[in-house]
Design a protein around this nucleic acid. Structure first.
Length: 279
DNA sequence: ATTGGGACCTGCTCGC
DNA sequence: TGCGAGCAGGTCCCAA
């Protein structure tokens, strides 16, 4: 479900609420198909034991991952997959359908991991030796980070023959961008999604860089995009969906030129673009 | 080394 | 109204 802006909003919402809170109990909802959220972790019992009693020091974000450094030295790492939500709720509230895991806090509230499609994952990562097997795979630079420049983008594109759209969504190259924002970024930059990455000229690289920064920044400003499932830490929708220019607008008229927005499959994902505005 | 395709899940919408 | 097909903010794994 969520890309960088949505995760960033959840981080900002949850941070002040859960930082300094102790996790007094971990409740895992039984599932006949197995607890898929913990599939990278060897044992549910061990997971609960290691998390219980620890204090959440802060909430951080890396790419599309939420990180919760704990007082024990471990870090709880949560990825929401396609349809996941992490909700901060009072204990009295009705439990959402597809709640998979609950972290009960010492202030009477709880963090609920809700995940209909079970694509989400929870890791417990320790810097201690012999416990690195649950570290997320290598991630590319943060596109909103200080270190990410037109020069870094240029070097990422260099020698890559694949469609620029596919490259933007590759977390090992640049992290945090998914299907919605890659469509929007390419529209803003005026670049056709199938263009081979290495064929972009210097001007196009500059436009692409600016579009990456601007789209992601704006999406955060408007609190993310809710197409269907995305909710922030309070269960509220985002506000960027009304500002989308091409995503999910296939066969509709382009908001800029009135031409017809086209759609095609790239890397198994539906990609929308305007052939007149993007070349 | 890179790249594309299928698999993993469940629910919803659309067309017949 | 009912049913199947196709689609959905992601990532891993494998084969070419």
């Amino acid at each position: 479900m969520p890309e960088l802006p949505e995760i960033e909003i959840i981080k900002r919402d949850l941070g002040p609420l859960v930082a300094g809170r102790k996790i007094v109990k971990v409740k895992i909802i039984p599932d006949p198909g197995g607890i898929r959220a913990l599939r990278r972790y060897p044992s549910q019992q061990k997971f609960s034991r290691r998390v219980k009693g620890s204090i959440i020091k802060e909430v951080k974000r890396r790419a599309k991952y939420l990180l919760f450094p704990l007082s024990t030295g471990d870090s709880l790492i949560i990825h929401l997959g396609m349809s996941g939500q992490l909700l901060y709720r009072g204990q009295t509230g009705r439990l959402e359908k597809f709640t998979r895991l609950i972290f009960k806090l010492d202030n009477g509230h709880e963090l609920r991991f809700v995940d209909p499609r079970k694509f989400g994952e929870i890791y417990l990562y320790s810097v201690k030796k012999g416990d690195t097997e649950i570290e997320p795979s290598a991630l590319g630079p943060e596109p909103l980070g200080k270190g990410f420049t037109t020069a870094s983008l240029r070097s990422i594109l260099k020698g890559r023959g694949r469609p620029i759209k596919a490259l933007l969504m590759d977390q090992r190259q640049i992290s945090g961008i998914g299907n919605i924002y890659s469509d929007e970024i390419l529209f803003m930059a005026g670049i056709h999604p199938l263009r081979p990455a290495s064929f972009l000229g210097e001007e196009e690289i500059k436009h692409l860089y600016q579009a990456i920064r601007e789209i992601l920044t704006k999406a955060i400003k408007y609190r993310g995009t809710s197409v269907r499932d995305y909710r922030n830490g309070f269960g509220n929708s985002g506000g960027f969906q009304s500002r989308l220019m091409v995503y999910q607008r296939g066969a509709e008229r382009c908001l800029r030129c009135q031409g017809i927005v086209r759609s095609l499959k790239i890397q198994g994902r539906t990609c929308c673009f305007c052939p007149r505005c993007q070349s």
